[in-house]
Computed example of a mutant assay.
Amino acid sequence: MLNFIHQHRHKEPQVKRNPLLNLIRDNMSKPRSSVVKASDDQVTMYLYDAIDPWWGISAESFVSQLAAIDAPTINLRINSPGGDVFEARAIVTALRQHSSNVIAHVDGVAASAASYIALAADEVEISDGAFFMIHKAWTIEMGNADDLRTTAALLDKIDDSIANDYAAKTGKSKDELLALMTAETWLTAAEAKDMGFADRIAAAGGTNDAARWNLSAYANVPKALTAPPAPEPNRDRSTLERRMALLERIAP
């Protein structure tokens, strides 16, 4: 998901119909947990949140914790609905450059930006019952036709970059992967392994709680992951409402 925020000019607020803002709003009450736990020669990091510099796990906080680790093995446990593409890209770069052997464990869901963070690891293990999702980047934009074409070109470049990551891991062609991204494809653990996104399937472990997220912003969520919407959170609500109101007033 591409999470730079601009707003189309409309007479009525569009927040409820905007998938980017819905994903952030509906999951902001979930606990943030880029927590590091250490044992003798292994460290476990948890990416159990949306990837977002305001309402979830930021690249700054994640990478600073990662940089402090010198254990031979890092177990990166993932249960995330996705988030900001550029924050995720910074996390990917840090993981690839780290000297430790990184094992990604998809405990619940690795959706959107979380999917290519998983693929930055040296090994990918997905729990039986977990899901892996890939799709094309989203954004919100305003402006004239030239502005919109420029943004569309940027989105194409981002999709191409992400497809390269998927191709490097799976060995599949970029055209095939871009078609899967266009369709917003959700993969079971077995499908993720068969297609090369995961190296192996683990017995259920971690939380394996993919249904904790409100994924209604996405179009093709499997029934196994649908759940009643979480109640509106009180924490940070006033700040979020001010941010939403600002988005509605961007256009002159």
Rank of each mutant, 00 (worst) to 15 (best):
Gly206Asn: 10
Ser173His: 01
Ala211Pro: 13
His8Ala: 15
Ile5Arg: 00
Pro31His: 05
Leu178Cys: 15
Ala217Met: 09
Ala163Met: 03
Leu47Tyr: 02
Tyr46Val: 14
Ala90Trp: 01
Pro53Lys: 02
Ser100Trp: 00
His8Met: 14
His8Ser: 15
Ala210Glu: 15
Pro222Ser: 11
Glu241Pro: 12
Glu87Ser: 10
Ser115Asn: 04
Leu187Asn: 04
Gly206Gln: 09
Asn144Leu: 13
Ala38Lys: 08
Gly171Pro: 06
Ala189Ile: 03
Asn208Tyr: 04
Leu23Asn: 07
Gly56Thr: 01
Ser112Ala: 11
Lys169Cys: 12
Leu21Gln: 06
Asp194Trp: 00
Gly196Pro: 14
Lys169Ala: 13
Ile24Pro: 05
Thr226Ala: 09
Asn220Leu: 14
Ser34Asp: 08
Asp122Arg: 04
Met45Leu: 06
Asn101Tyr: 02
Trp55Asn: 08
Met244Lys: 07
Met133Ala: 13
Val221Phe: 03
Ser64Pro: 13
Gln42Glu: 06
Ser216Val: 10
Asn79Met: 04
Leu247Arg: 02
Lys169His: 04
Glu176Val: 08
Leu240Tyr: 00
Asn234Val: 15
Arg89Gln: 03
Thr93Ala: 11
Glu241Ile: 08
Glu87Val: 07
His135Val: 09
Ala251Cys: 14
Ile250Gly: 15
Ile134Asp: 01
Tyr218Met: 06
Ile117Val: 06
Lys136Asp: 13
Lys169Ile: 07
Ser127Trp: 01
Ile78Val: 07
Thr207Asp: 15
